[in-house]
Amino acid sequence: MLMIIKKPLFIILLALCASPIIGAGTALIMGAAFAMLLGNPFAALSQKASKWLLKLAVVGLGFAVDFNQVIAVGKSSLVLTIVSITAIIGLGELLTQAFKLNRNTGVLISFGTAICGGSAIAAMAPVIKAKDHEVAVALGVVFMLNGLGLLLFPSIGHYFNLSQQQFGMWAALAIHDTSSVVGASATYGALALSIATTVKLTRAMWIIPYTALAGVYFRSEEKASIPVFIIGFVLAALINSYFPAYSSLWELINSAAKQLLVVTLFLIGSGLSVAVIKQAGFKPFLMAILLWIVVSGVILLLILDGLL
């Protein structure tokens, strides 16, 4: 009987998330609550669909971004990006040793924290020959922190009276996954969303050089490739920038992408389970939390002091 009720209820909630009445944060909470209380009746399908829908949503969001802004952000933040990514990975290595954590798990968590969460973890995993359970633990820990970031960051931003520009920068640099960065910034404002998306996806392009360096360090024959959704985002930004005559169409696509993101966040939330929490364990979660607190705290202080 419970299974019969669960399936239609899940579909109804998913349909609600496709409507404008449900926001990004609410969708994630709904999905997580449903999974924890009733269990996801479409777990495998939800996991597969969320990955593809997220990529489509990110590409669609590119239709609201000025390509010249992407280039400007990349140039202006070159030194900051290199220094911050390297520092985060270095700190992650120290914490991995301090907690006597599995090396591969520590590397994946550090890399995911430094660049862009799940995408960075997926790119690094084959390079360091990470095992399935190591990848699963890293993704589980990062996912849980993504949920916290999506819920906590807007409130913290309002508490410190951050402008939309400041919040967009902070969210992009301190929240792991692109999905949660977009979700948190979308609830803060349109300008915050634009800045956060641009900064985060510009940063995500650094997956390639850092995985290449890791390949040399770990003597791996695996080669990382740039995620296709990043290429799609850049192409969408190019189209938006150089074909302004069709701006109404680009706005329509962008609006659809925002709502698609809400649906995706519900599916991502529905992937949370007691099994994932147990598999992650205590040490990886504590290590990831300390790393995240230091990173987000330092970046917030730099923003408040006007250094970023």
Rank of each mutant, 00 (worst) to 15 (best):
M1V: 15
I4Q: 09
I5N: 07
P8F: 11
L13C: 12
L16S: 06
L16F: 15
C17S: 01
I22R: 08
T26F: 12
A43R: 12
A43N: 10
L45N: 09
Q47H: 13
K48Q: 15
L54G: 10
V58G: 05
F63K: 02
V65E: 01
V65R: 09
A72N: 06
S77T: 13
T86V: 02
I88M: 07
G92D: 00
L95K: 00
T96C: 04
A98Y: 11
F99Q: 05
R103T: 13
N104Y: 04
N104P: 05
T105Y: 02
S110W: 01
I115K: 04
C116T: 11
I121G: 02
A122G: 05
I128V: 11
D132Y: 01
L139I: 12
V141C: 05
F143R: 07
M144F: 05
L152P: 01
I156V: 14
F160Y: 04
N161A: 03
Q166W: 05
W170L: 05
H176T: 15
D177M: 08
S179D: 04
S179G: 03
S180L: 06
V182F: 08
A186M: 11
T197M: 01
V199F: 11
K200M: 07
L201N: 04
W206P: 06
I207H: 02
I208W: 13
Y210I: 12
T211I: 08
T211R: 09
A214V: 11
G215C: 07
F218A: 13
K223H: 03
A237T: 12
N240H: 15
N240I: 11
Y242W: 14
P244G: 09
E251D: 12
I253V: 11
I253P: 10
I253W: 08
K258W: 12
L261N: 05
L265C: 08
G269Q: 10
L272N: 10
L272W: 03
V274G: 11
V276C: 07
A280N: 03
A280Q: 10
F282R: 14
P284S: 05
P284K: 00
M287P: 10
I289T: 14
W292I: 15
V294G: 10
S296M: 01
I299F: 03
L300G: 08
L300Q: 00
L302I: 09
L302Y: 12
G306E: 08
